[in-house]
Simulated assay, not measured.
Amino acid sequence: MKKLFLIIGAPGSGKTTDAQLIAQHNTDSIVHYSTGDLLREEVASGSEQGKIIDSFISKGNLVPLDIVVSTILNALANAPKDVIIIDGYPRSVEQMQALDEKLKSQNQVELISVIEVQVSEAVARYRVLGRARGADDNAEV
């Protein structure tokens, strides 16, 4: 059975960096996925699901929860390693409940832990404004 770890935290908390470092130091046993990357890869694949995702992303809309969860579950099922780290998901209780419901109905992947990366608001603001990579990299977020 595959083991799943979720890393959550505010924008700029370092969750992606932490997940990448953990995976890089354990390349033989751990794979890391970012939810945004999974969605972009699905779009790039040209699949039917990718076309649906693109229809939302291209208009600046959020991808529906069921599609996000389906994309994550597909990545988990096809993960090349038995330990998987996903960063940036969930962002809400509703998102966690949706994933948890699906995980409970199968026996291929077990959620082991949700790890929260915490930093002060000042540090998060400094990091987000310093990177300014996307529309959500602003002081309000």
Results as ranks from 00 to 15, higher is better:
E110V: 06
A132D: 10
I22Q: 00
T71E: 15
M96C: 05
Q108N: 14
L99E: 05
A75E: 05
E41I: 06
H32Q: 14
A19E: 10
D66I: 06
E121T: 10
E48K: 13
T17Q: 07
V31F: 04
K2V: 09
G9I: 12
T71A: 13
V68M: 11
E110N: 10
T71D: 14
I8M: 05
A10M: 08
R91H: 08
D136E: 09
E110Q: 12
V43I: 15
N107I: 06
L65S: 09
L21V: 14
G134T: 11
L4T: 00
L62T: 00
H25M: 07
R131Q: 08
E101L: 14
I84G: 02
V123T: 11
E116D: 08
D28L: 13
S58C: 11
I52Y: 02
G134K: 09
V141K: 07
Q24G: 00
G88N: 12
F5S: 01
M96T: 01
D82V: 02
I30D: 11
S34K: 07
N74K: 15
V117A: 03
E101C: 10
I86W: 13
Y89L: 03
T16V: 01
N107V: 06
E140V: 11
E101R: 12
A77T: 04
T17D: 02
V128W: 05
T35P: 05
L4M: 03
I72G: 03
V141F: 04
V31T: 13
A19T: 02
Y126Q: 15
S120F: 12
D54F: 14
V128Y: 08
V119F: 02
Q106N: 07
L4C: 01
L99Y: 04
D54Q: 15
S92K: 11
G46M: 08
K59F: 03
D87T: 01
N138K: 10
N74E: 15
R131T: 04
H25Q: 13
L65M: 14
T27M: 11
R127T: 09
S45N: 12
D28E: 14
I57L: 14
A122Y: 09
V119S: 12
G12A: 08
V123Q: 06
S58A: 15
K51G: 07
S55A: 09
M96I: 01
Q95Y: 00
K104C: 03
V69P: 00
S58E: 15
V119W: 06
D100M: 05
L38W: 05
I67W: 11
